[in-house]
Design a binder for these strands. Structure first.
Lengths: 193, 193
DNA sequence: CGCGACGTTGATTTGCCTCAACGATTGTGG
DNA sequence: CCACAATCGTTGAGGCAAATCAACGTCGCG
């Protein structure tokens, strides 16, 4: 599994053996227990996080203490508070583990060094960011033009694997309804009497 | 104004005189009248669009014929249906002009050629895409955790210039309410009796 | 075992939508 | 340059999707 990240990168660009080692050398590995944080509101997001195993979530907490999930990240996904990472200022988002996870991370200074040593990485992260933009645009279509039932259906279609692993309340916090309402909705979908 | 795009690019990367000319040579210029389309549902988004003057919108039309605006693009902004552009398949979004506009566009094949000739452009578009990701993440915070009044306030704070130029119904379609409701909301904000 | 997290169910409320009607403004063809 | 239509914002009455609040059963876990 040591090569999981390199395989992912090589799906987008080609790296020499040497370059691969340079990338791996820049990564810090860490385990993260369920419910433990990578990032909390008020902190500066110092690193980009790559999920080797487990599941993370990126979310905000509103004035009433309710959580709203912006993105999940399962194995092979990158995740960060992009605003805070780019500007290196205090952010308003949280990242924590939904399951015990293994994370590899690169600090912003180290990424910038990698870009100098391996210009092809610019391409890799450009492609990732463009794919993320595409995903966010499509999610806004869903978010703005569908009701709760259809948003749930869209989520199931898009992330069939995640549905099985996620507690219901997190799905609710992602599609933008209360846990109570999602419960009633699902009940009704199963009993279409 | 011939250098508007190059100035924008040079805010992020350095380009030689020669490279600047190569970029400009790849751009197709066009004028677009108000309400005319750059892209319609079912078409493949062939190009990236750069707004030299005017305002565009990227939006979807739902099953009931209602429009939902994903993004505005004023002078100096790039805009495209990223999903369709990346995969070169038929998309579900529209792009049209809110005001008479001047657009410069690069086709996907030409961008890919530019990446080969001028690798630094990978960096430019990576930075743009990362900024877009940051903006979309923050908009989801607003969209998921705020009510209509607060989403309107957030929009005003983020795009103070746009508020003045946009018809009210487009702001409504962006923050996710009906024009009628936005009208009542604003009325109430001005008459806090 | 006992506690806290999670999902469920019901009663009630509310934020926003729907539909309809109406001025004001814009734009367009004669 | 006017007449007419179309677009836009406004206002009101009524309706619905989803939130709120509260109570309860279950389960996993320390």
């Amino acid at each position: 599994m040591e090569d999981f990240l390199l395989e992912h990168i090589r799906r987008h660009i080609t790296l020499t053996e040497e370059e691969g080692k340079t990338v791996l050398a820049a990564m810090r590995r860490r385990k993260l227990k369920k419910k433990h944080f990578l990032l909390q509101e008020g902190e500066v997001n110092q690193s980009s996080f790559f999920v080797v195993s487990g599941i993370l979530r990126l979310y905000s907490v509103d004035a009433n203490g309710f959580e709203h999930i912006i993105q999940f990240a399962a194995e092979g996904w990158w995740i960060s508070d992009m605003q805070s990472l780019l500007t290196q200022t205090a952010g308003n988002l949280y990242i924590d583990a939904i399951e015990d996870s293994e994370i590899w991370q690169v600090s912003k200074p180290d990424i910038d060094l990698l870009y100098q040593k391996i210009p092809a990485l610019e391409r890799y992260f450009r492609l990732l960011a463009e794919n993320a933009v595409a995903a966010y645009q499509q999610r806004f279509v869903s978010s703005l033009s569908q009701n709760a039932k259809d948003r749930y259906a869209s989520f199931c279609r898009l992330y069939p694997g995640l549905i099985l692993q996620l507690p219901q309340k997190h799905i609710a916090a992602y599609i933008g309804v209360t846990p109570e309402f999602l419960s009633k909705m699902l009940n009704q979908l199963n009993n279409p009497s």
